[in-house]
Every structure is written in structure tokens, then in C-alpha cells.
Design a protein around this nucleic acid. Structure first.
Lengths: 167, 167
DNA sequence: TGTATCTAGTTCAACTTTCAAGAAAAGGTC
DNA sequence: GACCTTTTCTTGAAAGTTGAACTAGATACA
């Protein structure tokens, strides 16, 4: 039942509710699926794998902790723990930042890179099967646009340029 | 760069990669956003809130543990811990299942229901602002269809009816 | 210089999730 | 009934996450 605007709380329409449920359902299953796949084939959860991917793309395969945390959308605290674990695995190592003595670079080791090279094909295949193999090209395009819009709305603005009180 | 079919591992096209990144980005931000919103306004993470919602919709506001776990797409173990926590809050209580002495029902208490009634409007508003307020009606429809397809592909088939070796 | 403030990263404790193991009841088969 | 298997749910330990507190170094400014 769709509530007309009576002054009470605004609920979602039937369609919105159904879309929201589908969204939660699909995203939960996807995350579980990939976590399991990577835990099995690469010995780490999805987010840790993502950290290695980020590092592999960075110049000289290294990145400042804070920047990496920002890229991966996790807190610095969580990153500290994660890097500690990945270091224990030998896939990442920390190195002092030469220009800022507070800073640390997380560096993808050769072993880390090799692990990534080994597990990437399987992971990509899992992603393809779970998502792209099932959608039409149009749906893929739509999904991209929709996700861009949602992310933009939730993204904390990191540029102060357009904050009125700083104009 | 899009790899042609050379026999090596099949990568994603540029567009697929970009859509995949957008998907990960948006879903991560959304989950964080809602977790924070509910932790702040209802004192529990999103998934726990979801459990209360499920119970509130169930007949007599109660449900067998296994069934609840299935609905919420979490393991029974996780549910056991979660219900223990919610029980401590006074929002849920366990009750023996009369027909099966192994069974337990999770029951939404009046306090739990009140808590839900109190926090639901804010949560719905958060969902609306994060998603539906930013999408066109067409995008909402597309998103629903896309999520249905993805969920269907990942959903473990619980009917054995069509397994070939049981035919 | 001195001092106040900010930033980078870590650490701790509390909480949540996972995985493997286990207790208890139910269901099947002889 | 006895026996074996399956289902239901819980438990405990290990792993991961969170948010607040903390250290050390950078930055700003008088």
C-alpha cells in the first residue's frame, strides 16, 4: 500500500520497496559469493584482495596508508589491521615514507604480485559469471549509470572549493 | 585495453571494469552509510535491524531460527549470536517451538516493535535520500530488474527437482 | 623560538563474523 | 527396539571491524 502524502512518515512505494529488497538481496549474495570465492582461492577476504589490486595499480606498487584507505573506502584503523595481516602473509610490506616521517607506504611485494597474478583470472571469471554474463549490454550500461549516481550522492565531498562559507 | 580472445584469461572490457568499480564503490558506500545511520539512531548494525524487520512481518511476529536465517541470508551460527545480542537488548526473545523440541522461535518483543516503529521513518528516509531520490523512475525499474537477475543467478537452488542425477 | 593545532598511523577494547565442533531431537531402516 | 543419518541450534576460538584514545611528526603563527 502506497501512503499518500498525509503528513505522516513518507514510506516507499510498493515498487521502491520491492527494488530495495532486490538490491539488498543481490548485493548480499554477491558479497558472500566473492568472499567465499576469494577465501577459497586466494586465502583472503574480498576487501583484502581489493587492497592488493589497488597497490598493483599504483606507481611503483606502493601507496601511502591514508591514500590507500581512501581509495579502498575503509578507515585507517581497519587498514592498519589489514596490512598487518597481509604483511604476515608476505604479500605486502611497510616502508617508511622518506618525505614525511609520520608516513608509511604499503608496498606490494613480488610474492603479493604473484599471488594476484595467480588468482585474478579466477576472480574475474567469478565476477563475470555472477554479473556480466547475465545482463544485456544495455543493462550493463544502465547499471553503471545508476551506480555512478548513487555513489556520487553518498561520496563525501573532499573538495572545499564549492563550500559557500569558504567562497 | 580490451583483450581479444587469444586463449589467455578473459578479462573484462573497459566498460565492464568501470561498471564493476562503480558497483563496488556504490554498494560499499551505501552499506557504510546505512550501518552508521542505524548504529547512531537505533543502536545496531544494518543486518540486526533487518532481522527485526523480518520478525515484524512474520505471523505473530515470530519465526523459526533456521527460517529467519534463510530469509536474512545469514548462517545459523551468525543468527544465534545476533539473537543473543538482541535478546540482551530486550528486543527479541527466544521461545521453544512446541512442535519440534530442537526448534526455537525468535520472537519480536513489544519493546523491539516499539524500537522499530521509532527508527523506521528515519531509516526509510535515509534509503530514499541515498537511492530513490536520485534515480529516475526508469532507472528504478531497471535497477529492480537487474538486481533480480543477479540474485537469481547467485541464489542457491533449494529445490532438487531439476538436478540431473536425481531425474 | 614557543605553542597550539592538525595530520598520519597505530593500538586497545568492545563487538561482530566465521568456521569447526558438538549436543539434542527427529527421521529412516532393519 | 537398535542403529545410522540428518536437522536444529549453540558454543568457543580465531579472525575481522569499529570507534576512541594515543604517539609522533608536520604545520601555522605570533
Amino acid at each position: 500500500m502506497t501512503t499518500a502524502s498525509t503528513g505522516g512518515p513518507r514510506w516507499l512505494t510498493d515498487e521502491e520497496q520491492s527494488v530495495w529488497r532486490a538490491y539488498l538481496h543481490a548485493t548480499t549474495l554477491m558479497e558472500d559469493h566473492l568472499d567465499r570465492q576469494l577465501q577459497r582461492d586466494a586465502g583472503m577476504p574480498h576487501i583484502y584482495y581489493g587492497l592488493l589490486v589497488h597497490l598493483s595499480r599504483a606507481p611503483r606498487r606502493r601507496k601511502r596508508m591514508t591514500e590507500l584507505a581512501k581509495d579502498a573506502k575503509i578507515t585507517r584503523s581497519r587498514l592498519s589491521h589489514a596490512v598487518a595481516r597481509l604483511e604476515k602473509n608476505g604479500w605486502v610490506r611497510r616502508e617508511d615514507c622518506p618525505s614525511d616521517k609520520r608516513g608509511q607506504n604499503a608496498v606490494l611485494t613480488d610474492e603479493g604480485y604473484a599471488m594476484l597474478a595467480r588468482s585474478a583470472p579466477g576472480h574475474v571469471e567469478a565476477v563475470r559469471q555472477a554479473m556480466f554474463a547475465r545482463l544485456t549490454p544495455e543493462q550493463v550500461r544502465h547499471l553503471g549509470e545508476i551506480m555512478q549516481v548513487i555513489a556520487a550522492g553518498l561520496q563525501p565531498e573532499d573538495t572545499d572549493a564549492d563550500l559557500p562559507w569558504l567562497r
